[in-house]
Amino acid sequence: MEAAVETKSLSRVFEPKKKKEGKSVTALDSVDLRIEGGELFGLLGPNGAGKTTLLKILSTLLLPTSGKAYVAGLDVESQFSAIRQKINMVSGGEISGYGLLTVKENLWMFSQFYGIKSKVALQRIDEMLKDFGLSEKKDAKVRTLSTGERQKMNVIRGFITDPDIIFLDEPTLGLDVNASRVIRSYMIDWLKDHPTKTVVLTTHYMVEADELCDRIAIIDNGRILACDTPERLKKMVKMNTTLSMDVTRLKDAAVLGSFSGVENFTFTEDGDKGLTRLRFVMRDESGVSDIISAVLSQGSRIESLQKTEPTLEDVFIKMVGKGLE
């Protein structure tokens, strides 16, 4: 099947307005990317990584300096008109529309730019306002909306034209847990209902990327550092797993450090509670079951057990060299 998005050595350089002032900025550097139809694809990267630049090129607002970009198999440079029939885009923190129009009027207006019949548009607006819990704001002036309400309206604006591919630039930027959840679950449901459609989003939020996206590209300095499912990305960083255990009545703690895969072992006695706290740093997980049976064979009981695995954040720090927040 034809990819929803494909780029080949895509680069974008911004030249300074006047030659003397500053140097040129390479916002994208030989990006090769393939996003399949049906995917919820995330671009994760620090400020200035090139995420917005990539979305602008894909949504036909910016030309590549070199390389190629295809959306729905169409060239962004020469076939932008055809691409525009199939896409829509929403940016976080967007203040688009007209403040003196109501929510309904604004959404209707934008739907008209896609030539949608008013009756169809108004019906979709009603349904989607309900989906987003925004029905009672239908007749409120846009300028009176809160950030979250406004962003929900923006996201509705994007989906209401029924695009094949939607580009979302930090759609949950600055939103509270509730508003973010509404937007995220809408995206998931939308893809469930339309299995061939595609969502491409950028984000700063690790958890969002991890829980929401089928695949993630980690981007920094205009380069794609890694691109895979969240699970496989986490496996890629050869990080140690930490195993913490609280056990009772342990006779000999010291022997536990000799099992295979254990890189580091410490224990502390908690006399008040009669507990021993064990902490293993494991190279791999092969020895975990041996450790547990050794503990049990001493007649101990395990009061609590915790295994810490690498998070996407660890992956990110390892790849980019710094965290996001």
Binding site: Y98, L100, L101, E105, W108, M109, F110, S111, Q112, F113, Y114, G115, I116, K117, S118
Partner: peptide
């Protein structure tokens, strides 16, 4: 959506004219 190019563009004209017309009344 089988509407022709002209119909779609006329809807766009109407869409963009709308805030101008109601704006004049609301401001």
């Amino acid at each position: 959506m089988s509407d022709g190019w002209i119909i779609k563009n006329l809807r766009a004209v109407k869409g963009r004219a709308y805030p101008r017309v109601v704006g004049a009344q609301r401001e």
